[in-house]
Structures are given as structure tokens and as C-alpha cells.
Design a protein around this nucleic acid. Structure first.
Length: 626
RNA sequence: GGUCCCGUAGCUCAGCUGGAUAGAGCAACAGCCUUCUAAGCUGUGGGUCAUUGGUUCGAGUCCAAUCGGGAUCACCA
């Protein structure tokens, strides 16, 4: 039994005995502050209505009644309206013996949870943003599993569309048959290279057109575009600053679409959709290269999926839903044939669900995919790990599904995360400031090697084992750095400073663990594993260690329920830090009193296990020596 | 302009349903290795929790407004 739950239950009993209306009173109950004697604190301010007395008197009254019934209460103090309760040392020691690091099953939702994450495009390699996405997805999956839920990990690969055609086209024009084998490049990097090349070539073609447009000459554009350009151009003459930049951006897109290259790309997309043999086989070949590259990156990051969906297979889904929606009167058709939903009552706008030519948009596809998945898996929750630039999209997605009558859509959750910024600001591919995932992992591991060699000592000597250790340390540094931050916040990553290994970092926690393992190895056969709880007397530090271990289960539950792995990361750090303090203050192997020695050994062992379990939830491995 | 997210120490971040004197790490300075791994530990300095008002026994936390940063509001995905 978890002490916190146990005590809470007992307090409720006492309150019910004391006060007639106690049943529905909410208990404000929390761990006691470090500088005050006690384990848990009952905040009594809110209970004064029940007792009709001052907060302090209420606290005293409760304490008195509670003590009469429970021998486990070692003492208490009342400060203002705070009732600080200390449980006996024996109670905690007994608890330690049965502590197994398992998470009490959450009773919230026992249905499976589907987690979609990664969702890469197949036209370029993964970058820092994907790293945050993947790490969040993996750790959420593990945390949900630890909290007792069945998890289905899903990846929806964006393998079609104009962006793929760009890479294909550039490769066709200037690739000269280059392959990953012939170039020695990882497949995704090779394809990414041609994507960049396309952009360069496009710019060369579109710049002159843009200059002409800015000068008021729209002759390169077709009639419809010229009309649009003329409107924008007129506005531009009266604008400045940001607004002008925005208009220039739109004009630039018009210029792009007027280039021969864009027309070729569009034509290629048409051929692809028509199932043209040459186009399809080139597409398949280049995608295969990319998947091979992704697979390497995923494996190194510890990312895996139960099922992979491809947009090339799902992009036509959803049209049927639109028909349904029209029949139900939830959707409406405009004169030009396009289909919309009106969300103005929900504080949003009208949203397009089907183009006037009858083709589907992003939203149509996502609606279809969601319904298809629900039919297949009947999960209780569908978690989408997607950046916060799509907050609006997912809000609409959920609303539309609900309006269509799919009540299970209540279980949709957008795990929205903030961008990863560089100290200089946003990552911009045009400025070449994108941090590549593969490079990043290499750097971080190289840094781990360098720092470790500077320290000039390690318990590991075999060179293959050393390489493995550096990989573990570097990846721990990276993963922990990203996962310790609340997902919804933007975060700053400084590649120049690389990554710390001291302080609040992954390697710090690994080090604490390795140290514990060292003690366990040496203590084997030296320290008696059994101890007599009755022979031990109260000690604040030991009690605090056990209390902190106790927080593992509630922490994992909270992380699962709030879809927030950072809670687990911060917990692991707290625990490691606390143990390091403990380690410096108390010796295990040198302790002469065998009861204390074995208690501490038990504490060390369970701390180690809990650290390892916590970090495993973040996808971080723990070395036995370092 | 509408909507949403964020603003805590020089920097990077914690701060759970509102609770006691707002915490860590990095950086700076001063200590601790003949004693279980110094990737560690201890100490010092560093704060108008963006601002103003409100709600109440109590606000970094809730509400409103303002300022600052970002996202989004496409017949793109």
C-alpha cells in the first residue's frame, strides 16, 4: 500500500468521525516541506467551515483524534493551519522492504491508447525538431505502458505530394544515376540533397520573374495569377515593413508557380496520381533509399512502431465522411462545389473539407484516417505527437469528428510541443541552420568521448565496450536534455556548446546509477542483506530517501495522465541528486552497525532500480560502470 | 485584426489539484579525494515570478487588461 494513499484514507476516516459533512470535503494533502519535521501535511484552512474553529485549532483537533486511532503516527506539529504528520520510522522501513517500483494501475482509462508520432516527409532527412517529436512519442508510449495501458505506436509517413516530386525531378535532371551505394551517402541525405538542389534551381528561374512582377510586369503569369498578382501588387505599393514582406512572400509564391520547374513538378505529381509506370518506379526507388536512411536513424534513437501508415495509401480517405456529413446537414456545399463546415459557433472559422474540384485536403485525409483507425483498433485515446503550429488543425479535427457524431473523438489528444530554437532564433533550411539528426547524434557521442577522456578515468577499458559507453552517455545527454523540458514550451538548443554532462543532465543520473552498481558489487557477501527494522531509530535523511522512492508510482501516473514525460525526467534527477547527498553523508560498506548497513544497501539497490526504470521510460540506457 | 501558446536568477529550466521563507543546473567565487566512482558533495553571491488591477484566509499558479516573444487563421501538407 502506498503510504500517501494509506494516510489519506485514514485521515478521511478521522474526518468523517469528527465532522458530519466531511464526506465531500476535498483534502489538500501534500508532502511536507523539507525544512519542517514531518512526512505529509494536511492543509486545514479549507476545513474550518466543517469545524467552525480557527485553522490551527482545527488542525489540533484532527491530530488528536487521528492519534487515538493510529499507532503509525510518530508525531505531529501544527504551524498555522498546517498539520504536519510524521509516520514512524518503522513504518517507512517496512514500506521500503515491499517497495518494488511498480506503478499502481491507473483506473482512468484501461482501453488501449494509440500514439502517432514521427510523421516524417520522405524528401529530406530528420532534423532536431523530429528528434523532439520522436523522443516524446517513444517516452509517452513507455510511460503509458508503465501506467498499465496497452499502447499502439503508429507512424504516418508523408510519402507523396509535390515535395517528393521536387526531389525526384532534381535527381532526374542532374542526378546522373547517383545512388546511396555510388555516393556513399545515407539514402535520406541523398534525397535531401536533391531537394535542396531543386530549390536552388527554382530560385534561379523564379527570381527574374519576381523582379518583373515587383516592377509591375505580370506577363509571365497566366490570367488568373496575373489578376491575383495585380491585387497584391497594388496593396504592396501602400504597405511597408512586415506587411510588405508578407505580400512579397505571396508574390514570390506566384513567381515560383510560374516557373518551368514548378510546372514540371506539378506534371510529375499528375503522372504519379495517374499511376504512370516510370514515375511510380522512380518514386518507389527514392522512397526506399529514404526509408533505409530513416531506419538507421530510428534504430540509433531507439524509435520503433507497431504500424506504419503511408499517406500514399490514405490520402483518398475521408471523402465518404464528407458525403455523410452533407447528408446529416453538418456540412454544406458552396456554389462552386467546395464543401465546408461552419465552426463559428465554436469560436473558429469556416473550414474547407473538400475542394471545388472534388479533391481532398489535409483535413479530409486526417478525418478519414482517424475513422479508419478507430474501426481497426477501438482505442480509448488517440494521441497525436505533432508540433504546436498545428494546434488549430487538431482542434478542428476533433470538433468535426464530434459533429459528425463520433463520440470516441473525445479521446483525441494533440500532444502539442514547442519548437526547438537555436540561440540565433528559428532553424531555417534556407539559411542552412537546420540541425541534422544524424549529425547531432554523432556530435553528442563525440562530445561524450572527449569529456570522458579529459576526465582521464573510467571503469571500462575494453575499446568496444568504451564505444558502447560513449554512445550511451551521449544519447542520454541528448535525450534527457530534450525530455526534461515541458513539451508545450519552446526550448533553446545550443549546438555550439554541445551538451553538458554535469548537473541536471542524463549522464549525471547515469553516473549515480553506475556508482550504486559499484557499491552493490562490492557489498555482495560483505553486507548482510537482512536487517531488523526494530533496531533502527528515526533518521531524517533515510526517511527522505524512502519518501522520494515512494513518489515513483504517482509520478509515472501523473506523467501518463498529463502526457508529460518531463515529470519523469525531473523525478529521476531529484532522486539521483538526493542519493548523491546521501552517499556522501553515509557509508554503506564501512558502516559497522549491520542493521544500518543493510538498510542503506537496500536503499541503494532500490534507488538504482528506480533510476533505471525511470530512465528506461525516457528511452535512456544505464551503464553498469562508467 | 480574430484565436491559441509562452514570459520565473546573466543563461538553460523546475515549481503537482491555489498553500508555509519561489527552487535546481550552468556560469562566477570559496572549500572537500590515504575513506563505497570528485561525471560527485558543501558553501557564497545572484529574483519587482513581464506590468497593472481583481478574486480570497492565502496568488508564480485563477480572472481581466496591457506589454513583449511565438504560432495559426490557405481550394499547401
Amino acid at each position: 500500500m502506498n503510504p500517501e494513499q494509506w494516510l489519506k484514507g485514514k485521515l478521511k476516516e478521522t474526518l468523517t468521525k469528527l465532522y458530519p459533512n466531511a464526506a465531500d470535503a476535498a483534502l489538500v494533502f501534500q508532502p511536507t516541506r523539507k525544512d519542517v519535521e514531518g512526512d505529509f501535511t494536511l492543509v486545514c484552512f479549507g476545513l474550518t467551515k466543517l469545524s467552525g474553529k480557527s485553522p490551527a485549532d482545527t488542525a489540533r483537533e484532527i491530530a488528536k483524534a487521528f492519534q487515538e486511532d493510529n499507532a503509525e503516527l510518530a508525531g505531529h506539529s501544527v504551524i498555522n493551519g498546517f498539520l504536519n504528520i510524521s509516520l514512524t520510522f518503522q513504518f517507512w522501513v517496512n514500506y521500503l522492504q515491499q517497495f518494488g517500483g511498480n506503478v499502481s494501475a491507473s483506473d482512468l482509462n484501461q482501453k488501449p491508447v494509440m500514439i502517432e508520432y514521427s510523421s516524417p516527409n520522405t524528401n529530406k532527412p530528420l532534423h532536431l525538431g523530429h528528434v523532439r517529436n520522436n523522443l516524446l512519442g517513444v517516452s509517452m508510449a513507455r510511460i503509458a505502458e508503465a501506467a498499465g495501458r496497452k499502447v499502439i505506436k503508429v507512424n504516418l509517413v508523408n510519402d507523396r505530394g509535390i515535395h517528393i516530386c521536387k526531389s525526384m525531378l532534381a535527381w532526374k535532371h542532374s542526378g546522373k544515376g547517383e545512388t546511396p551505394q555510388s555516393s556513399g551517402l545515407k539514402g535520406d541525405h541523398l534525397v535531401g540533397k536533391y531537394y535542396v538542389e531543386f530549390d536552388k534551381a527554382l530560385k534561379a528561374q523564379s527570381d527574374p520573374i519576381l523582379q518583373a512582377i515587383l516592377a509591375g510586369d505580370f506577363s509571365a503569369l497566366d490570367e488568373r495569377q496575373a489578376e491575383r498578382a495585380s491585387i497584391l501588387w497594388n496593396k504592396l505599393q501602400q504597405s511597408e515593413g512586415e506587411k510588405a514582406d508578407e505580400l512579397k512572400g505571396e508574390l514570390k509564391m506566384l513567381a515560383n508557380s510560374a516557373t518551368l520547374l514548378m510546372k514540371e513538378a506539378q506534371e510529375m505529381l499528375r503522372l504519379w496520381e495517374a499511376g504512370d509506370n516510370d514515375t511510380i518506379s522512380l518514386w518507389k526507388q527514392m522512397n526506399a533509399w529514404v526509408y533505409e536512411g530513416f531506419e538507421q536513424t530510428y534504430r540509433r534513437m531507439g524509435v520503433s512502431f507497431d504500424k506504419i501508415y503511408y499517406e500514399s495509401e490514405t490520402y483518398l480517405l475521408g471523402k465518404q465522411l464528407v458525403d455523410e456529413g452533407l447528408q446529416k446537414g453538418v456540412l454544406f456545399r458552396k456554389e462552386d462545389g467546395s464543401v465546408w463546415i461552419d465552426l463559428r459557433n465554436e469560436g473558429l472559422d469556416e473550414k474547407l473539407l473538400l475542394r471545388s474540384d472534388g479533391t481532398s485536403v489535409y483535413m479530409t485525409q486526417d478525418l478519414g484516417t482517424a475513422v479508419q483507425r478507430h474501426e481497426e483498433f477501438k482505442a480509448g485515446n488517440y494521441v497525436y505527437v505533432v508540433g504546436n503550429e498545428q494546434d488549430y488543425h487538431f482542434k478542428v479535427l476533433k470538433l468535426v469528428l464530434l459533429k459528425l457524431g463520433y463520440s470516441w473523438a473525445e479521446g483525441l489528444y494533440h500532444l502539442s510541443y514547442g519548437m526547438v530554437d537555436l540561440p540565433t532564433g528559428k532553424m531555417k533550411s534556407r539559411e542552412g541552420t537546420v540541425v541534422d539528426a544524424d549529425d547531432l547524434m554523432d556530435e553528442v557521442v563525440a562530445e561524450a568521448r572527449k569529456k570522458s577522456e579529459e576526465l582521464g578515468k573510467t571503469e571500462v577499458s575494453d575499446s568496444a565496450a568504451l564505444a558502447g559507453l560513449y554512445e550511451q552517455i551521449g544519447m542520454a545527454a541528448l535525450k534527457y536534455f530534450i525530455l526534461k523540458v515541458d513539451p508545450k514550451k519552446r526550448m533553446v538548443f545550443n549546438p555550439a556548446e554541445s551538451i553538458d554532462i554535469n548537473g541536471n543532465t542524463g549522464p549525471f543520473i547515469q553516473y549515480s546509477y553506475a556508482r550504486i552498481q559499484s557499491i552493490l558489487r562490492k557489498a555482495h557477501g560483505v553486507v548482510n542483506p537482512h536487517y531488523d527494522a526494530q533496531a533502527l531509530t528515526n533518521d531524517k535523511q533515510h526517511r527522505l530517501m524512502i519518501r522520494t522512492l515512494e513518489q515513483y508510482s504517482p509520478t509515472v501516473q501523473a506523467a501518463a495522465e498529463s502526457y508529460n514525460p518531463s515529470l519523469v525526467a525531473n523525478y529521476a534527477y531529484e532522486l539521483a541528486k538526493l542519493f548523491n547527498q546521501f552517499y556522501h553523508e553515509f557509508s554503506i560498506l564501512k558502516e559497522e552497525d549491520s542493521n544500518w548497513a543493510s538498510l542503506r544497501l537496500e536503499l541503494a539497490r532500490k534507488t538504482g532500480e528506480t533510476l533505471k526504470a525511470s530512465m528506461a521510460l525516457l528511452g535512456i540506457e544505464m551503464p553498469e560502470r562508467m
